[in-house]
Computed example of a mutant assay.
Amino acid sequence: MRARTALPVALTVILLGLTGCGAGSGADDDAAGASRSSSASPAQPPASSDTSRNATPGPAVPEALRFTATTVDGKPFDGSTLAGKPTVLWFWAPWCPKCKAQAAETAKVAADRVGEVNVVGVAGLDKNAAMKDFVADTGTSSFPHLSDEKGDIWKRFEVTEQSRYVILDKDGKTVYEGVLPGGQGLAEKVAGLTG
C-alpha cells in the first residue's frame, strides 16, 4: 500500500517544483512572465507577416507590356511576363510571303537566345485557323504567337503593315521598328541588347 500512496506524493512534489511554487510572490512572477513574453515578441514576425518580402521582386512592368492576349493555340498570354528582358515582337500575317521569308531567321534567333531574349509573334489580318497553319508550315512553334484578329496589339505598337519587327530593350523602350527582309539583321540587333 505504501507504493500506491508514495507515487501521488512524489508527482505532487515534482509538479510543484516545475511550476516554480515558492520562488516568489505571484505578482512578481506574473510581471516577470509578462516581461519575458513581451521581450520575445519582437523577434517573432507578426501573424500577418508577408514572407514574400524576402523574395526577389520581379522587374517593373513598363506600360508597353501591360496587355493580355490569347495565343494561336488558345492559351492566355500576359505581356507583363516579358518584362526585364529584351523583346522581339514580330508582326506577321498568314498570307504574307515576306513574313514567310522572315520565319526561319526569327526562329533561329529565338532558339539561339532562349532565356536571354523574348521572341513573340503577333499574327493579324486573318482568322486564327490560318494563323495556326502558318506557325505549323513555317516551323516557328518554339516561341509564342499571339492571335490578334482584332488588331489590338498591332494598334498598341502602332504597326500598320505586316512583316514588321518591334524590338524593345529590357526596360520596354522601343529601340527598333521596321522591316528586316528575310529577317536579316535581327540577330545583330538582338546581340546589341544582350551583350
Results as ranks from 00 to 15, higher is better:
86 P>W: 09
5 T>F: 05
7 L>V: 12
15 L>S: 14
141 S>C: 02
184 Q>C: 00
190 V>T: 10
163 S>Q: 01
145 H>T: 01
48 S>W: 06
110 A>T: 12
26 G>C: 00
189 K>G: 01
117 V>H: 12
73 D>M: 00
144 P>W: 05
86 P>N: 09
116 E>W: 04
107 A>R: 11
136 A>L: 04
24 G>E: 05
90 W>K: 05
79 G>E: 04
115 G>L: 02
4 R>P: 00
94 P>V: 08
38 S>G: 01
20 G>C: 04
179 V>C: 00
148 D>C: 02
104 A>Y: 14
104 A>D: 15
134 F>A: 07
148 D>Q: 07
103 A>Y: 10
174 T>F: 04
171 D>F: 00
35 S>D: 13
187 A>H: 14
129 A>I: 07
75 K>C: 00
55 A>E: 04
137 D>K: 15
30 D>I: 10
131 M>Q: 14
105 E>K: 11
57 P>A: 06
114 V>T: 15
63 E>Q: 15
175 V>Q: 09
151 G>H: 11
50 D>Y: 00
133 D>Y: 08
102 Q>G: 11
115 G>N: 07
119 V>G: 05
178 G>F: 06
82 L>W: 05
163 S>D: 13
11 L>W: 13
20 G>I: 06
20 G>M: 01
49 S>D: 09
27 A>K: 12
62 P>I: 02
115 G>Y: 10
143 F>Q: 11
144 P>Y: 08
65 L>Q: 11
55 A>L: 03
97 P>Y: 02
17 G>H: 10
26 G>Y: 09
1 M>Y: 06
52 S>Y: 03
153 I>R: 07
46 P>L: 04
40 A>Y: 12
158 E>R: 15
192 G>M: 08
99 C>S: 13
